[in-house]
Design a protein around this nucleic acid. Structure first.
Lengths: 343, 343
DNA sequence: CGCCGTGGTGAGAGCGCTCCCGAGCTGATC
DNA sequence: GATCAGCTCGGGAGCGCTCTCACCACGGCG
């Protein structure tokens, strides 16, 4: 059989069909796994596809199906430096891996200025993607509010601010983690456990604080006294710890809401001549590979499995895109205590 | 004028044309900034576009122009953990920012297994993107070899292994940086300057070593004696430093080929009771924000501006895509010395 | 023996866009 | 006043795919 090669490069479905001796429609049916094809046709088309190295043209397919085969992964974060955070790298990597075998492309959208936000909104509204994963932890974030009005399936990583009604999300159990951390310190017999919080405009920090509160049974006055905001930065953690130390000289333990802040807190404790964990036990949060194992002493921490979180987000979104039922709109993933030497 | 809204959602070019009272062809000309349109037509179409909130359908456009409007950003890295490296995050962020205003989408492709590699090759060959940025530093990498056969514009970040003939790339001046670092130590009057290298299968490490060699004038025997491979890891840096210290007890300076390794080296020096910089001066490489400023003492380091590198890569690739002439196929970006306390 | 249902198939329309080509309209030239 | 160059513009084809619809062959049934 003589098969005319497609003039000018890549084979089309027409070429495949010709080679397989069937019509374009049948070839298409095979590619889309339609049940209504004979086994001979299926075989012939499959062979032709691999012989020609055929790959469907995404644009043509997108044009007729009105599906782009791409999703956006949006990070909305007013502090651009946060993007240097390895946590962010980890989330991206996890998303890339989770999507790798699904033939769905991921388009990265980083937002920090108002201009970026307008661009992101336009992009998401513009039908360039079929859905989105959103990370927008800040209270001041405006993007969530406008995106939720879009007829676009979105799965959030962590709870965004504002009403959750109708939102799909996968959160880590920050409150449970805070509880776990603080209870561990209590079980060591510690009595005066302070807490270095993250920024109050991020719900992860608010939740971790809530965990601490419920473990120690703190009222507002006690919370006021025993906590300091470290803003999720190393320097902030150091300063917060120093302030707490000045205010409560006989404190014997600290739950610090991130490993990065805990590294700063350890510095403050060292400078104050406190021994860890002998004088003061410290528990961090994140179980950050690049930090927790390398502090002095190595940091006991709460692990949240970001890979797993993203994997859940991706599969949740893909279900939404396929119009499959999802078990629950909201999932909360457990955290666990990782023991090292600081507590 | 009565304008029939497009039945079922998003406005099409047809709608815009109808509203502006022109033909689809003219509307298209306006969108593509063709010079052959009257100012009235231009105005009318522009107005219609913004009134309708029209956004062109990428798929339809891609279908006819045979351009996808997307590029791939490929990281080929056998050690998946490297993806947790903040350096990687920085590169991604820089790429995202550089592409943000160009209306080109970026598709992230992470490769570490052979399977990933086959998938990446298929993807790049499949016409899903118009071009690619490639980071493939390892000698063992197979992807470069197959990708260079593709009729796809590619700009490399750093020199890949193998023949460079015909490749477009933007490299950092690693050799110059090594020279800079070592000359700085020489200028401090140091006499026995050792070097902790990165893995020999990465040209960045090979180049940094070459810089050290040329600065100290080392022959092979001296190189054998005065260098140790730290593999670009913290632990490796620590072990390498310890070995050098054992072999050359009176060494008075070390050029360590990455900040991460330098952090490990400082640990080894501390454990050996050496003071930095009094006994031994140390210079790192990367000027890594999360590391260099936070070691004890803070690390003097060589800065390579990754943001700038990626910016150059992106603009180079965009030029290639537009068939514009590029000044040079290969660019080498300068490095600079950042002084802190370790040297 | 005619009828209908059923499974496999192909023809053809059409997704929204770009671009070629030729129509029409101006103003300058002989 | 006829001709032509120079512009702007619209008609229409066609990019590669999916999907509807009609068709055909076949077997089982009344």
């Amino acid at each position: 059989m003589i098969v005319q090669p497609h003039p000018g490069g890549r084979p089309t479905l027409e070429d495949v069909a010709a080679r397989a001796g069937v019509s374009r429609a049948t070839a298409s049916r095979v590619l889309n796994a339609s049940p209504r094809v004979s086994s001979e046709a299926l075989e012939a088309v499959t062979a032709a596809v691999s012989e020609l190295g055929y790959q469907p043209n995404r644009a043509a397919r997108a044009l007729v199906t009105r599906r782009t085969g791409a999703i956006a992964v949006v990070f909305s974060e007013p502090e651009p430096k946060i993007f240097d955070d390895p946590h962010f790298a980890r989330l991206i990597r996890a998303a890339a891996r989770a999507l790798a075998e699904s033939d769905v492309q991921m388009v990265l959208v980083l937002v920090h200025s108002a201009e970026d936000q307008a661009r992101a909104h336009r992009f998401l509204a513009g039908g360039h993607v079929d859905g989105a994963l959103m990370f927008a932890p800040h209270q001041s974030d405006q993007l969530t509010a406008v995106v939720r009005k879009l007829p676009l399936p979105v799965v959030y990583g962590g709870r965004p601010w504002g009403p959750l009604r109708g939102l799909h999300l996968v959160d880590n159990d920050n409150e449970g983690g805070g509880l776990l951390a603080t209870n561990h310190l209590l079980s060591l017999g510690r009595k005066r456990i302070v807490h270095v919080t993250g920024p109050h405009d991020e719900l992860s920090a608010v939740d971790r604080l809530a965990g601490w509160r419920s473990a120690v049974g703190a009222d507002d006055a006690m919370t006021e006294l025993m906590t300091e905001n470290g803003g999720y930065t190393r320097e902030g953690g150091k300063r917060a710890m120093a302030r707490l130390l000045a205010r409560i000289p006989d404190l014997d333990a600290a739950f610090v809401a991130s490993d990065l802040m805990a590294a700063g807190a350890l510095e403050a404790l060292r400078e104050a001549g406190k021994r860890v964990p002998d004088d003061i036990a410290v528990v961090g949060f994140d179980d950050h590979a690049a930090i927790a194992a390398h502090t002095e002493p190595p940091l006991t921490s709460i692990r949240q499995d970001s890979d797993n979180q993203v994997k859940h987000m991706v599969s949740h979104l893909l279900s939404l895109l396929r119009d499959e039922p999802v078990k629950a709109k909201r999932q909360v993933l457990p955290t666990e205590l990782v023991l090292r030497r600081s507590a």
